[in-house]
Write a protein that binds this DNA or RNA. Structure first.
Lengths: 253, 253
DNA sequence: TTCCGTGTACTGGTCAGGCCAGTAAACCTC
DNA sequence: GAGGTTTACTGGCCTGACCAGTACACGGAA
């Protein structure tokens, strides 16, 4: 029988749904203003507390922003990866998600981003990548491994940007951020940090060259190998094995 | 000067933060109970409205769940990919994200998921994949293209599950879901839908074989080519070109 | 005319107190 | 013990209120 389970939707949920679908079908777009809480409470004929609960969840999911005292009312947010970051790091912190999974995902994203970057980069992209790499090298010369993770993050972000795919870019940024937490710990506990950092910068130089020469496979191989080597020492054999499909061509040491 | 910008945190935010960090450092774990709203309001010495706003955002971000009438209070949720799904589809639905980008991302995820599945599948995984494929074929025999997109989605989901990487799995589910909306439209407007659907099922059979035979590269190639061909007719030359790096080995027709 | 305080009418943040439908568990019956 | 029934309490929602803070129009000085 084609009965469909009843789903009672509470008042505040209904408000959330209505506003979300107004955005989905274009009645509201980023930058637009919602009426103030008192107006909304009249429009939906609910109490202000209910309106506020609805606004809170819209705010928590990055749909609107509101500031006290602003007579223009809450504003529909422009997209920000905040929620994605939050949910991914929530996921990555999960006991059931191993660090291998995160690393696999990162190699996958970073590899294709690099491939695409080498293929599609504009001159402006290349300029930015080169600049970031120079800053990275300068930072190593000046402060050693101190600010390494910040600079390398910016360097990689520039590459992802050049790839021209926002999904890959943003997801890459997020997992990159998550991994860099691990990286900081890794560097702190490693006696040989300067050597690691310098080798990584050298890889970076070859990477810039390959992207400049529009060599997708070469660039991707360098990038993947570089990331892999960074963590390789910490991995046990089973983990190393699980990463093989993402190392292409295989990294043999 | 090492002054740090003041950030005023509102009452409800402070509650959210406290509860989140209690979870982060293990004082609260999934399945545990929070006190009821009236107790919380005393503990934090705020009004009930404030407690409720805090609970609403915790609920919206998948941290807690509450049910009316339950004297045991709100419960700390087990992880669910709901938030990740929501944020991914937010991202993918962005106007500035073109369908090529979504398709690139999908090919990337689906390709590696298939590769991993062929490599890591257990017998139980294979059983599920086989079952799903049989259901797909049965559905085509019985109803033609009618329920195709549902069944193919389930088939692909089983493959992603077998890959053993939750990040790839969940992201794949999301973009798969988004693409399947497009697919439904595509099938409806195509006169030749039955032929398309049947070819896709045939690819599916070869795919199952390759996964069964633990042939990662073969399986991935079939999967990627299958997905690509499904959309290829709708794409203009520039879009086709942009997809080349994800078709490996290249699909020549 | 332009500029710059100043007022004011609003905003969102928070509080207190109250009603209701619904649930879980203790209670009571058999 | 298995069953219905009560009861104490839950979360959902409402009303009405106060406060600190903001945007903007207004009015006076330059």
């Amino acid at each position: 029988m084609p009965f469909t389970p009843v789903q009672k939707v509470s008042a505040y949920e209904s408000i959330v749904l209505q506003i979300e679908s107004a955005i989905a079908n274009g009645d509201l777009k980023a930058g637009d203003r919602l009426p103030g809480e008192r107006k909304l409470m009249a429009d939906f004929s609910v109490s202000r507390a209910t309106v506020r609960e609805a606004l809170r969840v819209l705010q928590a999911t990055g749909v609107v922003e509101s500031r006290p005292g602003d007579p223009r009312g809450p504003v529909i947010s422009h997209y920000s990866p905040r929620l994605l970051e939050k949910s991914m790091s929530q996921l990555a912190r999960l006991d059931s998600v191993s660090r291998v999974e995160v690393l696999q995902f990162r190699l996958l994203l970073e590899g294709s981003a690099t491939r695409l970057a080498a293929r599609n980069r504009s001159e402006a992209d290349l300029d930015l990548i080169t600049t970031r790499h120079r800053e990275l090298e300068a930072s190593i010369k000046a402060d050693g491994a101190e600010f390494f993770s910040d600079h390398v993050a910016r360097f990689h972000a520039a590459i992802r940007r050049a790839a021209g795919n926002q999904l890959i870019e943003i997801c890459g940024n997020v997992v990159g951020g998550i991994m860099s937490e691990l990286m900081v710990r890794r560097l702190r506990t490693d006696a040989d940090q300067l050597a690691i950092v310098q080798r990584s910068a050298l890889d970076g130089a070859r990477l810039v060259e390959a992207i400049s020469a529009r060599d997708p496979e070469g660039a991707a191989a360098i990038q993947v190998a570089n990331i892999y080597r960074f963590y390789a020492d910490d991995l046990d054999p089973a983990e190393v094995d699980a990463l093989q499909p993402f190392l292409d061509p295989p990294v043999v040491e």
